[in-house]
Write a protein that binds this DNA or RNA. Structure first.
Lengths: 188, 188
DNA sequence: TCGAATATAGTTCGAGGCGAACTATACAGG
DNA sequence: CCTGTATAGTTCGCCTCGAACTATATTCGA
């Protein structure tokens, strides 16, 4: 077991928390799990699932087991060090501020038409909402070998995701009608 | 004027849109402008304001003018190429999906106490809300040499920010009491 | 049963993002 | 004039990210 010291990032913990739920998963499986769960709170590009577990394994937080034929998949598991680090992080109080990133709003700042931007967002959040409600239904029947009772935390985050997208739809809808709620000085 | 080709990122446009409002600003001034405006939609670490304008200048999108004494500040201005690129981007329809990043939710996914996490978020969004409402008042009197009528776009984004933080406060408050809301779908 | 088309799975790479830590200038008060 | 603190600017290296790519699996028609 290697010991190359690395910095554990939030993405590291995202990977580890998925592995805790689904020990021995392949990168591809991790990617799919994420898409149906924490994607809404912590987006991770798919290449990360090939690079990050390798990094974590090199530092001793995961153990790897590679197939010798075919796709030569690697299956990863948490080591004790990994599990300890994960629990320590999860139990530590406080977290850095959340971030919202929206290029469309930036365009509005730069002078683009707010109506069009907001409408685009409304559509997108509606789509995500429908998607999540589908996942929620799926969750109850267990999912890819996971049992319902293992989903305590994950289920809470799906509910959170639904609440989030719903709130965003409502917010943008309220901003739509006239997006200068008062300040529009009748100077003209 | 150099011509080293670079990729224009969203952060590039953030810098350029601030410069369009406040021509000849120093990196430090840009940083302060951002904190009161697009920080809510596009977080940018302060070092970026020293590195990114240099990069943009090297590619011909900005012109630089460095003081020869004291702090040796650099003041940047949009070139025609920069202004054109900015307008082209702002007028292009569509934007990549927005992102929400919240390490606290990830901890909940990993098994942390949702109540504590949500309460922390409620406090934080309340603070931001108060901050933004202050900015909004300041906006009306112009701000650091900027006149009110130059703030069309920016003002819209401050309103957006207020709506956003308000919605997040409400959302987390609703999730608080019992964080398993029933799935209350009217589907019967 | 071959192989073309498509879907699935995995990898490489380099530019850009990011924050810790640091240096330097300005300014206020004793 | 010195010292402390606030303000302003910079360096550096690890991590992030996505485009582009390779490779394996599967499907389906001839």
């Amino acid at each position: 077991m290697e010991r190359k010291p690395i910095r554990l990032t939030t993405t590291s913990y995202a990977v580890m928390s998925l592995l805790e739920l689904c020990d021995g998963a392949t990168p591809y499986e991790l990617k799919q799990m994420l898409e149906q769960s924490i994607q809404n709170f912590w987006p991770v590009p798919h290449t990360t699932f090939y690079e990050e577990p390798a990094r974590l394994a090199a530092a001793g937080y995961l153990s790897a087991d590679q197939e010798q034929t075919g796709r030569r998949r690697k299956r990863y598991s948490l080591t004790d060090a990994g599990r300890d680090a994960l629990r320590a992080w999860a139990n530590a109080p406080g977290s850095p501020p959340s971030q919202y990133r929206d290029e469309a709003m930036l365009k509005v700042f730069a002078g683009a038409d707010p109506q069009a931007a907001f409408r685009g967002r409304i559509d997108w959040h509606r789509t995500k909402l429908a998607e999540l409600e589908g996942y929620l239904a799926g969750l109850k029947e267990g999912w890819d070998g996971l049992r319902t009772d293992q989903w305590r935390g994950p289920e809470a985050t799906v509910h959170g995701g639904i609440a989030y997208h719903r709130a965003m739809v409502e917010t943008f809808e309220r901003l739509l009608p006239g997006d200068q709620p008062e300040t529009s000085s009748p100077s003209g």
